[in-house]
Simulated scan of single mutants.
Amino acid sequence: MSTPETPAPADSQEPLVPLSSIQKALASYRVLAWATGLWLIALCYEMVRKYGFGDDSLSWIAVVHGWVYFAYLIATANLAVKVRWPLGRALGTLISGTVPVLGLIVEHFQTQDVKKRFGL
């Protein structure tokens, strides 16, 4: 606990930004993590059809997934800065969006951690 006379310790988990800003960043991260995960599954389906059966009719899925993943990178970096994730954790979360289903699993655990740390 800190009083006006004694400052909070340097390793305190107090956010540098308002909680409403963290809530918005977390909501954006969650939506884009799910969107990225689902589009990545669709991309895997498209790759099977393309390379397994010679059907190139769904090539637009790769473009959509690329843009959704780009938005996911921005949203994840925004959340990482606001909740002060260490660099390794932030990079691991960013990269998890490249492995089918892993991004969805990581999103669950990251969300639980952020909610617990900041009482959301």
Rank of each mutant, 00 (worst) to 15 (best):
F70L: 15
A80C: 09
W85D: 01
T76G: 13
A80E: 07
A71T: 02
V63G: 02
G66Q: 12
A71R: 04
A75H: 03
Y69F: 15
T76S: 14
S59T: 13
W67A: 03
W85L: 06
L87T: 12
V68R: 06
V81T: 12
L79H: 03
L79I: 02
L58M: 15
A62P: 00
H65A: 09
L87H: 07
Y72G: 00
T76Y: 08
L58Q: 15
L79M: 03
V63M: 07
Y72D: 00
V64C: 04
V68M: 06
L73K: 02
K82T: 02
I74M: 12
A75D: 08
Y69R: 05
W67Q: 01
I74H: 07
A62G: 15
T76F: 08
A62V: 04
T76C: 10
L79V: 04
N78C: 14
G88H: 06
A71D: 01
A71S: 05
V64A: 08
R84V: 01
V81A: 13
P86L: 10
Y69S: 09
I74P: 00
W67C: 09
I74T: 06
W60M: 11
A75P: 08
A80P: 06
H65T: 02
W60K: 05
T76N: 05
G66D: 13
A71N: 03
N78E: 15
V63L: 11
R84A: 15
H65E: 10
A75M: 12
Y69K: 02
W85R: 04
Y72C: 01
V68G: 03
W60S: 11
Y69H: 13
I74L: 13
N78Q: 13
L73E: 01
V83T: 06
N78V: 10
V64W: 05
V68P: 03
A62R: 14
A77M: 08
A80F: 03
G66I: 12
T76K: 06
P86V: 14
R84P: 04
V64Y: 06
V83S: 00
K82N: 04
A62N: 12
N78D: 15
V83H: 00
